[in-house]
């Protein structure tokens, strides 16, 4: 297992390099201008000078090489220095800067990360926590009322996009319900809000409810369906009959024998979904004005901010590759029939 993981980790290096190059070319070759969002009163010569200063006029290979150096060599050292107080000689080196804000891209990402992790991460956990029991019960009581309702809700979760369900919950909880009711919820997520005491925690909780609800609906729909299908595959297996014939308690049959087998594909799907926590909530973040990573990406795309788009997309790519590996390793741990050595 260890050698397998190591081998796979080494293999990710060329994969990621290739991905970064493809991302760079796509971003760079798309018609966008880093000065496009600036006021129209700026004359073309000045615009040209700005582009020159940003380094956007250098040859593609130089720009790509610079990005590689900044991302893989300068930025890690800067963060190591900050964390441990070492001196690795990054003084005077040019960090990976955003075209729009001229501040380091990694700092922007670090500022946005907590919001995204809080809202989307919590939604993911809530979604899984709801989905697993629903999936298990739906499969065990197939075609019961519970299963039918579960199927309907999943279909809604699958088919209603977050920009619609988000607005619907805003209309219900922020508009129709008067603001002095305890059921009223704020429609705008206040990123500057800090949790210092019980009251502020309650507010944080309230403002998270709606975005979490919208996201969790989607996640629940997917994972509960998946769990249900996987449970159904296993419930009719011969080994389940054997377990019953041994006199195992019905609850143990389902929650130990069947669930353990059913979880193998589900766990890998959950692991593969984790990267989407970082990148997938772009629309929901827009609806609720959560300034997380998704929103950062949208603004960067609109502004032709190549370094930010490139870096964010590449980080998503790293996460996807990494969690693919984790899913494979988990598969091997959960299923004794799979051994990588």
């Amino acid at each position: 297992m260890f050698t397998f993981t190591l081998r796979r980790l080494i293999l990710t290096i060329p994969t990621l390099l290739f991905i970064s190059f493809v991302i760079f070319m796509i971003v760079k070759l798309s018609p966008s201008d880093p000065t496009g969002n600036l006021p129209l009163t700026i004359p073309p010569e000045v615009r040209e000078q700005i582009r020159e200063a940003l380094g956007a006029n250098d040859s593609l290979i130089v720009q790509y090489g610079r990005w590689l150096e900044q991302f893989f060599w300068i930025e890690p050292r800067v963060y190591l220095e900050r964390t441990f107080g070492w001196d690795l000689g990054t003084e005077g080196e040019i960090r990976l800067l955003s075209y729009q804000t001229r501040s380091p891209v990694m700092d922007l990402i670090m500022q946005r990360m907590p919001q995204t992790l809080w809202v989307v991460g919590v939604a993911y956990l809530v979604g899984i926590a709801i989905a697993l029991p629903i999936g298990v019960i739906s499969a065990y009581k197939q075609y019961s009322v519970f299963d039918q309702v579960g199927t309907f809700v999943s279909m809604v979760g699958f088919s209603v996009p977050p920009f619609f369900s988000g607005v619907v919950v805003i209309v219900i909880f922020s508009v129709l319900i008067s603001s002095d009711s305890i059921f009223w919820l704020p429609s705008v997520y206040d990123t500057t809000h800090e949790v210092t005491d019980w009251e502020s925690f309650k507010y944080q909780f309230r403002q998270m409810i709606m975005p979490v609800m919208v996201l969790a609906l989607q996640i629940t729909a997917q994972i509960s369906r998946f769990t249900r299908a996987s449970m159904l595959d296993n419930l009719n297996q011969d080994y389940v009959r054997t377990a019953r014939a041994k006199g195992v308690r019905e609850r143990t049959v389902v929650l130990l024998h069947v669930l353990r087998n059913s979880m193998i594909p589900v766990v890998t799907v959950i692991a593969l979904g984790i990267p989407s926590i970082f990148g997938g909530a772009i629309i929901t973040e827009q609806v609720f004005k959560v300034n997380g990573l998704g929103q950062l990406l949208i603004i960067a795309i609109q502004g032709g901010d190549v370094p930010t788009v490139q870096t964010l997309t590449f980080i998503f790519a790293i996460l996807i590759v990494l969690f693919n590996l984790i899913a494979d390793v988990l598969y091997g741990i959960l299923d004794p029939r799979i051994r990588y050595d």
Binding site: Y239, T242, A243, R260, I264, P336
Partner: peptide, 9 residues
Amino acid sequence: MTSLNPVFN
């Protein structure tokens, strides 16, 4: 072949 649970020893 199928009567034993594959994930338990």
